[in-house]
């Protein structure tokens, strides 16, 4: 079949129609604009960029019983400046005899990836149903979908604890109906972690998909159907390419934070679901090993660098409409 690109065709008067962006000539930036840039820029440099440089620095230090609890990297001895970089934290992570760290990195990536796929499979139909509703019902449905995420995050996880636990609601119902004889072990399993992540991250998937679906050119879908495409083929050939930026944005909004998730595996997961966020928390709060926690964080960042850059480029292209 010949490739026909209708990509930029927009029917005037359709919902997605907007006047073309004005050409902005390169002009000199006035002092007033400089002042406007400076406030958010300085805030983010001070409270976002510099903290990462500090994490990086401290990851080369070792713990000491002191305040703060790590060894200084730069010391002055006999008038000469000395820089001592300890690589122990990183060698610990990669050569730990039990492989605890490497295993938990792999497990985190696996859990995050699988949760992302689940969110996409569940979220796409929801976003589609929202986008194709009448505008009056759409408003209220939209509100209903995102309202749970305005209530407390910890409370929502707690709600799943009461549902999934040994004498919880699901086991109660199944036992009374006589489907099972003894309660199923659901809390503190990977299943519970997946349920928790999907439940809490679903809105982050639905929102970008919804805004992408709202911009879809329906004539392409109709054309595909008229040309005899089956629904599945229409979906993959006409709908998915048009909502690509929404799919990327939604997936990254789920995948990247889910890698470092702490609360969900802590409350719903078992002792074996040691995700990397939990390791970092334990090293920091329980073992008070700040340098090791920093090294864990830097390694986590290195893993996430590629997805973060991908998300960032996608956001720039789509004009930041998440």
């Amino acid at each position: 079949m010949a490739a026909v690109t209708y990509g930029s065709v927009k029917r005037p008067g359709s919902k997605g129609h907007r006047p073309p962006p004005r050409f902005v000539p390169a002009k000199k930036i006035s002092w007033r604009e400089r002042a406007i840039i400076l406030v958010p820029y300085l805030w983010m440099i001070l409270f976002f960029l510099i903290p990462f440089l500090i994490i990086f620095k401290i990851s080369f230090s070792i713990t000491e019983i002191a305040i703060p609890p790590y060894s200084p990297i730069i010391t002055f001895e006999e008038g000469a400046m000395q820089i001592i970089l300890h690589l122990e934290n990183y060698t610990n992570i990669f050569t730990d005899p039990d492989g605890t760290y490497l295993r938990s990195y792999l497990k985190s990536i696996q859990v995050a990836a699988f949760s992302t796929v689940l969110c996409l499979i569940i979220g796409y139909p929801i976003a589609w149903a929202l986008a194709t509703s009448k505008s009056a019902t759409r408003n209220i449905l939209f509100l209903l979908i995102i309202m749970p995420s305005w209530t407390s995050f910890v409370v929502r996880i707690y709600a799943w604890m009461t549902i999934l636990k040994r004498n919880g609601i699901i086991n109660d119902i199944l036992m009374t109906l006589g489907i099972i004889d003894s309660p199923i072990h659901m809390l503190q399993t990977d299943l519970a972690v997946y349920i928790g992540i999907v439940y809490c991250y679903l809105p982050y998937m639905v929102l970008p998909l919804f805004s992408a679906l709202m911009k879809v050119d329906n004539s392409l879908i109709e054309a595909a159907q008229d040309l005899g495409c089956r629904p599945i083929k229409t979906f993959f050939k006409a709908l998915v390419p048009q909502t690509r930026s929404g799919i990327i944005a939604g997936s990254m909004l789920v995948f990247i934070p889910a890698i470092g998730e702490y609360v969900i595996p802590e409350l719903l997961g078992g002792k074996d679901s040691i995700l990397i966020g939990r390791i970092l928390w334990q090293e920091f709060f329980n073992n008070r090993d700040w340098p090791l926690a920093s090294a864990v964080a830097i390694t986590m960042l290195a893993i996430m660098a590629i997805p973060i850059i991908w998300f960032f480029k996608n956001q720039r292209k789509s004009g930041g409409k998440a």
């Binding site: 994490i55 934070p257 470092g260 966020g277 926690a293 920093s294 964080a297 960042l301 996430m304 973060i308």
Partner: peptide, 10 residues
């Protein structure tokens, strides 16, 4: 998008 454990520690 950054995991909260990293932002918090930083």
């Amino acid at each position: 998008i950054l995991p909260e454990v990293i932002s918090g520690l930083a």
